[in-house]
Design a protein around this nucleic acid. Structure first.
Ligand SMILES: [Mn+2]
Ligand SMILES: [Mn+2]
Ligand SMILES: [Zn+2]
Ligand SMILES: [Zn+2]
Lengths: 145, 145
DNA sequence: TTCAACGACGATAATAATTATCGTTCGAGA
DNA sequence: TCTCGAACGATAATTATTATCGTCGTTGAA
């Protein structure tokens, strides 16, 4: 259930983000904060629908994007919309623009000496580190006065 | 053009990976090694088709997956097939299984004290680091005798 | 209070990306 | 040369995402 304090918190977040706090948005935000994993839009839709049976999948998509764009939530492992293949065999990492999703190679030395972590849970075998530096590329930085 | 030495190299790679070296695979592999960015399957298809007009998009997909599965190439920013939303607001990183794509949270302290890189090209403004530790989860490690 | 304006919503069509199916072809080995 | 299974190409099917558009609800001037 939605408490008054939660609603006020969401209201403040929306004001800060410059978006209007609607009922649907509150429920979607609420649902996301109650999950503690990495749901897909479809996952979120299912949950929201159980609370708000008339909600549309499109609304869930629209608002997830809105939340991500305004910084209320993030996405896991930068989603490019399609599989992208690495053709640079040199060890390196990436610079990824959070707006246009441009991918630039980043020399490994600029992020060197990073050891594989030691205390891995549940029998996971680490093989490789994938480091993305997220931010804004020069072009996307322009178009925001 | 494909030189003999390249063909032999590819042949050796296939033997090592346990896959049969076909003509289509050679051309796809060749095309990938000649690109130096992060193409989508569609991008690769377009190029391959110009060399091998009868090739099918399905074949390109099948072989890209084969190459990735056998380690000849990697994918950029682990592709989960759909957008995934981060609902854990604590700063942390991820353990990602390269086979089943399971995502596990990894405490930030296990990968702590990593500074944002300094020498960024082309006016890129870094905001945040996204670190994925890639490997095999316990379950996927079993199913491989 | 009334009522235009506008943003957000829901339904649904359209598009994009990926995968599955299936009949045919190719090539290594008997 | 012949056989058999793997790989291929054509294409249908599925999945994921986005666009369109008519409607609804709220706001804020008159
Ligand atoms: Mn790269
Ligand atoms: Mn997480
Ligand atoms: Zn950009
Ligand atoms: Zn796994």
């Amino acid at each position: 259930m939605t408490s008054t304090v939660q609603f006020e918190h969401f209201d403040a977040l929306c004001k800060e983000a410059g978006i209007t706090p609607t009922h649907q948005r509150l429920v979607i935000w609420q649902t996301l904060t109650e999950m503690h994993d990495h749901p897909s839009p479809e996952d979120v839709y299912r949950r929201v629908k159980s609370e708000l049976p008339t909600v549309s999948l499109a609304t869930v998509y629209k608002n997830i994007h809105l939340f991500v764009d305004t910084g209320l939530f993030r996405e896991v492992s930068m989603f490019h919309g399609t599989l992208r293949i690495e053709t640079n065999s040199e060890p390196h990492h990436h610079l990824v623009c959070r707006k246009c999703k441009a991918i630039l190679d980043l020399d490994a030395d600029d992020l060197s000496g990073f050891p594989l972590p030691q205390h891995l849970p549940e029998g996971f075998v680490a093989e490789q580190l994938s480091i993305d530096v997220l931010g804004l590329c020069a072009t996307c930085r322009q178009g925001k006065p």
